Amino acid sequence: MSTYYKKSPIRLKWYLSHWKGYVVNREWLSERERYFAVIFFKSLKRLDQEELIFLKEKYYTDIPSKSNIETDLIETYKQHSDETMANQLGMDVKDYREKRVRLENKLKRIIEEVQQEQNLLITNEAEEFTLKAGKLYLKSYDMSFLGRISPDYVLTQDGKQAKIFHKDDESVDEFIFKLGMEKEPIKESEYDYIFNCVYHWKK
């Protein structure tokens, strides 16, 4: 079962180091990489043009950092130093760093929002999924003779033992609205790449 679409800590520097790699390797990204690339580029599109270019000039570099040992593709690129960028822009290093930190904090908040939106989109489009409450998955349940869900349902911590539901299953809503459970997709849906902001920089 794939798990990378779940709520995960936002490692902004990790996203920024993969920026160029997502672009140059766009035709060879794994499904996991596409998930993160979509979140990242959707988030970049919510920045102002000046903010986007400010971060791009520091992180979207031609300095290779890490390659994939299996594909030999360059995945990450090194950033320019604050001193280099401040000198290039004619700014005091302290002022440059303060502006960078402010913009990065803004981008991190945006990524958190976009990740939640993307997870919801994936969940709503999923054809198959399991139901869970916290760390517990619904394993099985019975229906009463009145067509209601019996309260004697079984939960498990092992996601592999969880009951698989289909999109048109009418019992799902009762578990979600009455018991507070949530969907966890088994397979992520297909989605388009969001690369327009990379090539056009909001011109």
Rank of each mutant, 00 (worst) to 15 (best):
K187Q: 09
D62S: 02
D152T: 08
L107Q: 08
Q88N: 15
E75M: 14
L155F: 07
D82F: 15
V93M: 00
E190R: 12
L179C: 01
E57C: 02
D82A: 13
L103Q: 04
E125P: 11
E98N: 09
M181E: 01
M143E: 02
L89C: 03
F40P: 09
K203V: 07
S189I: 05
P151G: 06
Q161P: 04
K66Y: 14
R148K: 15
K135S: 12
A37G: 04
E190K: 09
I186K: 07
D152R: 02
F165Q: 04
R97P: 01
Y153M: 09
L12W: 05
V198P: 07
L44H: 02
Y4V: 03
L131Y: 14
L73C: 10
V38Y: 13
D192F: 07
Q88L: 15
K13Q: 11
E188R: 11
Q115Y: 11
T3R: 03
E117D: 10
I194G: 11
A133W: 07
R97M: 04
S8W: 05
E125K: 15
N68V: 10
L52S: 07
L29A: 01
A126T: 02
L89H: 01
L55P: 05
I194H: 13
D72E: 14
Y60W: 15
Q79E: 14
Y77N: 13
F54P: 08
V101K: 06
